[in-house]
């Protein structure tokens, strides 16, 4: 039963990654980035790794997105 949840999350991860790469606007791509991090955190929790999940929750879902947003605000595209 946990396998169905795990495969559904993997499918959602692939959909999010393809949308994040192939979209036209850069703001849409940077909005989808914390969702990618959140799905990765849930996958780490299912695989029984709470330390990696804590590091992923801070870095991938938090600080990386903030730095990308501020960097896109400073540049012209």
């Amino acid at each position: 039963m946990i396998n169905i949840v795990f495969y559904l999350l993997l499918l959602f991860l692939i959909i999010t990654a393809f949308f994040m790469v192939f979209t036209k606007d850069l703001s849409n791509s940077v909005i989808t980035l914390p969702l990618f991090g959140a799905i990765l955190v849930i996958i780490f929790v299912i695989l029984q790794a709470p330390g990696v999940a804590l590091a992923g929750a801070i870095m991938t879902a938090g600080l990386t997105t903030a730095f990308f947003v501020i960097t896109i605000n400073k540049t012209e595209y």
Partner: peptide, 28 residues
């Protein structure tokens, strides 16, 4: 049944709130 995973939820909640605030202020 491992209660250490609640800390991950708390940290992720704080991270999500900071994300929404920064996106609403600094998106172009």
């Amino acid at each position: 049944e491992r209660k250490i995973f609640l800390d991950v939820a708390l940290v992720y909640g704080i991270s999500l709130f900071i994300n929404v605030l920064i996106m609403a202020k600094y998106l172009k």
